[in-house]
Amino acid sequence: MKVLIVEDEKTLAYEVEAFLKKAFYLVDLAHNARQALEKIEMNQYDFVLLDLGLPDKDGLIVLEHAKKHNSEAAFIILTARGNIEDRIKGLDLGADDYLPKPFSLLELQSRMQAISRRKFGVKNQALQLGEFEIDLQKRTVSHNSIEIEITRKEFDLLSYMLLHKNRVLTRIQLSEHIWGSFVDDDYDSNYIDVHIKNIRKKLGAYGNVEWLETVRGVGYKIRKQD
């Protein structure tokens, strides 16, 4: 998948680039609106990650133009402005998602995956996880075709960890995914533990859940399946 990152803050652009490259995306960079429009006219992208606060032009104008040339692409607005009008305008202009800065790279990837499923019909829904099968489309977990009842939040957690499998996810990262960047001064997000405990209990009744590892003092990870 080909991604264009439109971001004037170069350090930030490089971080996003590094992360996405690791996740096997092809990445192009643009640091202002002019560059962005040039590249969009020349190439076909699957994703355009667009910062609204560009030095030469408003990102929303870029979005409007880019939509004409690259209507197939999925646009994700990344902005520190974060006011409601921008969000509404962006979505009105055809942006597929909106992530306020500062965002988590893991969250970005999760959103991109969701768009891939929704927009590009990427069918990787039935994922194998040990003895369990996880259907991202239907949002179900099953064991030998028997559906296991888990809550919406538990499923969100499980699929998020699965997406970033073999990577340690901190409690902050997990709770931010579940509760959003909800304004709440409990930065010790120990509440995640309750959910993990429940997942282990519910799935453990059917089979082995050793793939869900606790990394002491850090968080949790789903171990790569061999």
């Binding site: 803050e9 350090t11 930030l12 971080e15 996003v16 590094a18 992360f19 690791k22 520190a80 974060g82 800065k101 500062p102 965002f103 988590s104 790279l105 893991l106 990577r167 340690v168 901190t170 990262q173 003092g217 850090v218 968080g219």
Partner: peptide
């Protein structure tokens, strides 16, 4: 927000590195 963004993404990228030692990982957290 912009510097916070950069810092957060840098930390996240570092946490994703496989060769990071446990100690550094804990410090990063």
């Amino acid at each position: 927000m912009t510097p916070i963004s950069i810092l957060q993404n840098k930390i996240e990228n570092l946490l994703g590195e496989t060769e990071v030692s446990d100690l550094i990982q804990r410090k990063l957290i």
